[in-house]
Every structure is written in C-alpha cells, then in structure tokens.
Design a protein around this nucleic acid. Sequence first.
DNA 1: CCTCCACTGGAAACCTAGGCTC
DNA 2: GAGCCTAGGTTTCCAGTGGAGG
Length: 397
Amino acid sequence: LPDSIDEIFQRAKKGRALFQNRDALSPEFIPDQLPFRESQIRQVAQILSPALHGSKPSNLLLYGKTGTGKTAVARLVVERLHAQDASKEIVTCYVNTRISSTEYRTLAKIAESLPLEKDKQIPGTGLSIGTVLDRVFNAIKASKIHLILVLDEIDYLVNTYGDDVLYQFTRAGEHVEPGLLTLVGISNDLKFKDELDPRVLSSLGEEELVFPPYTTDELRAILATRATIAFKTGVVPDATLNLCAALAGSEHGDARRAVDLLRVAGEIGEREGIHQVTEDCIRKASERVESNRIEDALRSLPIQNKLVLLTASRFPDGTNTGDLYMAYEGLARRLGIEALTQRRVSGILAELDLLGLLEAAVVSKGRRGRTKRIRLLIHSDMLGKVLSEDSQLLSLL
DNA sequence: CCTCCACTGGAAACCTAGGCTC
DNA sequence: GAGCCTAGGTTTCCAGTGGAGG
C-alpha cells in the first residue's frame, strides 16, 4: 500500500509503538541473566578465574548447536572477567571465524584488539599468515598482555583452512612469554574434534563444556523474560510466546532464532498498527526471517555464482551439470562476461548446494555417466528480484 | 558380471591484486 | 620504482567411479 511518508510518521508518532526497548531482542544483546545456563556460566568462570591472579587458565572448548547460549555465556563471562581485572593486563578478544571468513581476516581481527605499533599494523592484504602471526605474538609479548581469545565457530575455521593456525595458537604459550594467551573455542559441530591434530586437541580441549539445546519450555521462559524488557506491558499474549517457542523449539532449541522471531513479529505488529503481537505476526515473521536469510545469502554472492544460480532457474524441472554448463556459457556470452570452466562451475554448484540455494546431488545414471542432479531450492521470483539489483545481470531479467 | 559414460573431485599450476623490501 | 612475496580464485590435468544396459 502506498502509504505517504507523512502518514507513516504520523502513525509512528501516535504511538502504536509496541516496543519499549527493542535492543533487548537484538542479536548483539547480552542479557545479564542467562536463564538455564547458570551452571555453564559458573564453570566457565571457574576455569578462567586463574587469569585474575596472573596465571594462565586452561584452554577451553564449548560445544553445542546454534542458539544454545555458547556465545552469550562466553562473552558474558569474559566481559565480567575483564571488568574484575584490576591489573589491566587482561585483553579480551572475540572473533567469529565464519564471519571473518578467512584465516587472514580472523588474524587481522585479533590484531585489532592488540596495541600494535604504527608500523606493525595489519593491512587488508599483502602479508603472509606467518608475518601476521608474528606480529600478533610479538604484540602480546612486548606489552606483557594476557590475551583471552574467544574463537567462535572455530569448526568453520578448521574445516575450511585446517588446524595450522590453531596449532600455532595452542603452542603460543612458548612464543608469547612474558605475555599469556588463553583460548576459548566455540564449536557448533560436535564431531569437529575428529578433524583436529591430537596435539591441538589436547591443548585446546584441556577443558570442555557441552551446551544442550533449550527445551520448548525453557525457550518460552527466555522469551517471556526478554519480552518484558523489550515490549510494553500486555502487548505480548502468552499464546504468542508459546507459538514462538514452539516454532524455534522444533528447530533444535535455537534461542537466537526464537528471539529473532519475536523481534520481527513485533516489528510486523507495529507496522500493521495493531495493539498486540499476535500469533499471526509470529507466523509472518517466521516466513520473513527465512526469506531474509536467503536474500542476504543471494546478495553477497559473487557475480559468477549468481549467474550459475540464474542459469539453474532456467530449468524448472531440474537439470544436470553438462546441460547447465551449456546454458551458462550462452548467458555469459550474452552478458559479455568471461565464462568459467566446467570444473569451476561444478565447484560453484557444490558451494551453492552447501548454502542450501540449490540441490546438487551426485547421481549415477549408469551407462549415461555420473553427474549432479541440479534443482533450484528457492523461488525463482525471489531470485529474480534480488538478482535484478545487480546491474550486470539486469539485461537477463 | 563387465563396460563404459559423463562427469566428479583431488592436485598442482597459474593469475591477479596488493603489500613488502630495498 | 623494481622485484619479490602471499592469499584467494581459477584453470589444467586427470585418475576414479556408481550403476544401467549389455
């Protein structure tokens, strides 16, 4: 509906506002209470506490599926530890290795939290991993810092780049004296240990903690607490919280998902100008959250991956690598883009499969060879909508 | 039971952008 | 500024393969 700008602002002013503190539902929000995680908090605090009298705590590994509170617990405890530290020698650093996306960027992020001399800053590119590591270790050594390094989604780092860097970090004890380095690894993947060099594992996993998924009841309680902070009183009925908890609970007790859902539902309610966050808002939010996730994934894709995806969308009934590649070449020619080799396109198909944007299952057709059965998993309308934002692809849409 | 297709996917070489050293 | 280095993406090369059809 073509609401005029003023109308939108008027409605906002009139105060159909449902939120009183939206931040309480933002992904960055760390509540000072983490219900149902008291014992984990206590244990992590216990393990890290030697840092306060200048000795090195055990390295620590936290396991559990997404949204089970690993990150929140780690950040909460590390933050408090930092606050309690009178010596001011403790430096804490949190990096999500999947978001940093490469070894280099992960190290650069770590370096940001260290006092690096002017000529030892880390540029965006150009240095070897080894050089960056040296600079990081030297900074710790020179300023006698105790770095407590939280590596979130460490399984991503190891699966994509191997455990070399991690190995360097685990034996950094010898490199960084008189400074100290303590590692807190966070992994979503319970099997990730199998991939690790035993030397790394024995050092990193000196202490381990498993985070069980939240039950639906626990999710409901968490949501209720957050809702009272985030929303005005009486705005969120119990039934809404129940549905929200149930939806998130069915997806392996993911609290982040649950909180996300509630926030978006609140925004939908506000926009519709209704006075409560209804169950219907939750359902709409559930769809929205999912399609946003996909749209973001699409937007951040390199041009060639977009083109491969677009090619796949031209085959509503699915196709295979060879046929897709021929069509892809044609489209690339029309766009004046250099076509990649079939080997590379095959690799891109595997990447897109991993992202859940299409299905590329290897199938054998007997005498007619082996190939990937390729099927788009997203709406081609949505694909067209997002890809048309890319000026290079516009002429094909 | 064997063949042989149409690829797969590992390995290595190659390319490019960008920082470093001198 | 020349020449060197690295990371990350791509190409080149190729041995390997699941299973329908013979």
